[in-house]
């Protein structure tokens, strides 16, 4: 595994991104500690230069780290399973990585989310010369550091562990989970049904909220769409795994989210889970912009525009997600007259 060229590409992207991020974060510390926007002395001028280059570095670091995360995702989903004896998709790779793999993915996600939030704030901050958000932005940017360090640490652990792995059984893990115990599977079935209905209802509610946000960006709370979107993303993932994926695989009881990424299923997983990621990210952008609008009236105009843009993004992503996740199911129903599990 350590010899795999994709691993090298991943580490190169992560290392350059980390270098840029570290340089930016060091400059942001000065900004965070001593920012005095009302003054015009030589120190404040230096800090403004620092803030500018920290922002530039942050944008580039976010780009590089996103590239690294995408390379890692492609590796887990498409490439590395060929190096693991017995693995056929990302499930096998994650199984070989142990808990470190999923931890690494979680920490990568969190650090990218924090940096994304910083990017939203920075985008608002540069709209007005007062620089009211510069300090908050610097704080947010620095706060991604521990998560990023943990992400790198766990990725290292996970990739090193794959090097000496015994044979894994990828599909057996999925099937075992389905077959182990009838009571458990009944609970799972009802959980899947709850998640399916919740994801449908949450999706509809989110769409309605977004239409409202597009019409009236200056009204209503921003935290509500964020909470709904985060809860919806969990429910939608579970529902997709338990219900929607079956229509891609054309078999029941193979609830594997990673097989969706394979070229056999046209890499649908990238688009479906990408849609979920866009919804979560843009809802957080709405929340941050709404907070900014309430606290700093000087930024109300740009924040309103940002909210509208994010709302459009969420609407687009939701439509794409729904079409990809439910489309095969509906096509199946229209063609055969029943759902895949036999119910009319």
């Amino acid at each position: 595994m350590i010899w795999h060229p994709l691993t090298w590409a991943f580490w190169v992207a992560a290392a350059t991104g980390g270098l840029l991020y570290a340089t930016g974060a060091v400059q942001a510390v000065d900004v965070m500690l001593n920012w005095t926007p009302a003054h015009a002395d030589i120190d404040q001028l230096r800090r403004e230069r620092h803030a500018e280059s920290a922002a530039l570095l942050g944008h580039w670091a976010l780009g590089f780290l996103t590239a690294a995360a995408l390379l890692g995702l492609v590796g887990v989903a498409l490439v590395w399973h060929r190096m693991v004896p017995g693995a056929m998709c990302g499930t096998g790779v994650l199984q070989a990585m142990g808990t470190d793999g999923s931890r690494a993915m979680i920490f990568w996600g969190v650090s990218l989310l924090i940096l994304h939030g910083w990017r939203v704030l920075d985008g608002l901050d540069v709209q007005r010369p007062q620089g009211v958000l510069t300090r908050t932005g610097a704080r947010l940017m620095i706060s991604a550091a521990p998560f990023f360090l943990l992400a790198v640490f766990y990725s290292w652990q996970a990739l090193m562990r794959v090097e000496t792995v015994p044979t894994v059984s990828c599909c057996a893990a999925v099937y075992d989970r389905v077959l182990s115990g009838a009571s458990e599977s009944a609970a799972l079935k009802s959980l899947a049904a709850i998640c399916l209905w919740f994801s449908l209802a949450g999706g509809a509610a989110l769409l309605a909220l977004m239409v409202l946000k597009i019409r009236f960006p200056d009204r209503g709370s921003g935290a509500m769409p964020a909470i709904i979107a985060v809860l919806w993303s969990f429910a939608a993932t579970v529902a997709l795994k338990q219900v929607g994926s079956a229509y891609y695989y054309q078999v029941l009881s193979h609830p594997c989210p990673w097989c969706l990424f394979l070229p056999d299923y046209y890499g649908a997983g990238f688009f479906i889970f990408g849609g979920v990621a866009v919804v979560v990210m843009e809802s957080i952008a709405i929340w941050l912009a709404d907070r900014t609008r309430r606290r700093y009236p000087v930024l109300a105009g740009p924040a309103g525009k940002r909210i509208q843009r994010s709302a459009w993004g969420i609407v687009t992503a939701m439509i794409g997600f729904t079409m990809l996740a439910l489309g095969p199911a509906i096509a199946w129903r229209l063609r055969t007259g029943v759902w895949l599990n036999g119910s009319p």
């Binding site: 090298w8 270098l19 580039w60 590089f64």
Partner: peptide, 29 residues
């Protein structure tokens, strides 16, 4: 996939180096 890997492996550090050196050179008053 191999071509993407190579492009990432060579292109990303190259871009980062150009970016960092420019920033360092142009970052004075």
């Amino acid at each position: 996939m191999v071509m993407i890997e190579i492009a990432a492996m060579v292109g990303l550090p190259f871009l980062a180096a150009v970016f960092l050196t420019t920033l360092r050179a142009a970052d004075g008053s």
